[in-house]
């Protein structure tokens, strides 16, 4: 009596456990499908809808007055390029040198503090960054400006550049540094001429990641760069930007503008995804882009 039951029970139990195991596997695959589907939907829609409105005029002409057909947002593309350049001019030196500090001298308490707050900085809402840049630059200069927009974007870019630089330099083997020091080379020369060149690919990656991150940022530009219907008029004047223009066109009631928003979205998406794919191609190791 007892022995057949004993023989059967484990098999039965395993049967139920197998079913549970299968069910969980199906759930995990379903979750993966659910996570990837929106990506494909968004990318697909933007590609299809954006392709309609693509034209040379989009990137070369000024916006046409409401009701008139045609026109473009060439000023916004130029504006975005200028904003990214201003942001990079601030964020690259600050980010790279803080990264050098973190990697080369950041072993102590101050390094830990800096590392921690650099990470925290990535979590500050970009709209708050906009308010800060507004207060620091727009109010004193009495004007929305490309400068304040670039400054706001640089605050978002700095932590990305700093932490990727740190990671890149930490991957440079200790023996390379020691080889240089053992030749009687100064520490600073060792860092600038041996360590940084060896980690250069990683630093460039950081810069590209930073640019990819800010090129689609909209919120911090709302009350700094502000947007403009004209070509740029210098760093101290309001300036147009592609993501701002997409936002303003998307919430407008005009179908012409909607079409332009989709087309500009396609270009922006290709730029951002292209940069991300390029980064991955350059660094086969697979960089952390999500923090």
């Amino acid at each position: 009596m007892a022995s057949p039951a004993l023989a059967v029970r484990p098999a039965l139990a395993l049967g139920r456990r197998r079913v549970v195991d299968r069910a969980m596997s199906v759930l995990f695959v379903a979750a993966t499908v659910a996570a990837v589907t929106p990506l494909l939907l968004v990318v697909g829609y933007i590609a299809v809808q954006g392709a309609h409105g693509l034209s040379i005029a989009l990137v070369t002409q000024l916006p046409a007055p409401v009701g008139e057909p045609g026109g473009g947002m060439g000023n916004a593309f130029v504006g975005s390029a200028i904003l990214i350049a201003v942001a990079s001019a601030i964020a690259l030196p600050v980010g790279i040198l803080s990264g050098v500090y973190l990697s080369e001298f950041g072993g102590g308490r101050f390094g830990d503090v800096l590392r921690f707050f650099t990470d925290v900085l990535t979590g500050v809402p970009s709209i708050v960054v906009g308010i800060v840049a507004y207060t620091i630059l727009v109010v004193p200069l009495r004007s929305f400006s490309a400068l304040s927009g670039g400054f706001a974007l640089s605050i978002i870019m700095i932590p990305t550049v700093a932490r990727t630089t740190e990671e890149a330099l930490k991957r440079v083997p200790l023996t390379i540094r020691e080889a240089s020091l053992a030749l009687g080379v100064h520490e600073w020369t060792t860092i600038l001429r041996v360590v940084i060149p060896t980690g250069l690919a990683g630093i460039v990656t950081g810069a590209m990641l930073g640019i990819a991150r800010i090129s689609g940022e909209t919120a911090p530009l709302l009350f700094t760069a502000f947007g403009s219907a004209f070509w740029q008029q210098g760093l101290l004047k309001p300036i147009a930007a592609v993501p701002l223009q997409i936002f303003q066109y998307a919430i407008s009631p005009y179908t012409d503008w909607h079409e332009q928003a989709w087309a500009a979205a396609l270009i922006l998406m290709l730029l951002v995804l292209g940069l991300n794919v390029a980064i991955r191609a350059v660094t086969r190791t697979g960089f952390r882009t999500v923090r």
Binding site: G216, P243, F247, A250, A265, T289, V290
Partner: peptide, 17 residues
């Protein structure tokens, strides 16, 4: 990679969609 690319899509584009 796909999921990280999703993270890279600017929020204004998700809003548009």
């Amino acid at each position: 990679v796909l999921v990280e690319l999703l993270a890279a899509i600017p929020s204004v584009l998700l809003g548009l969609w």
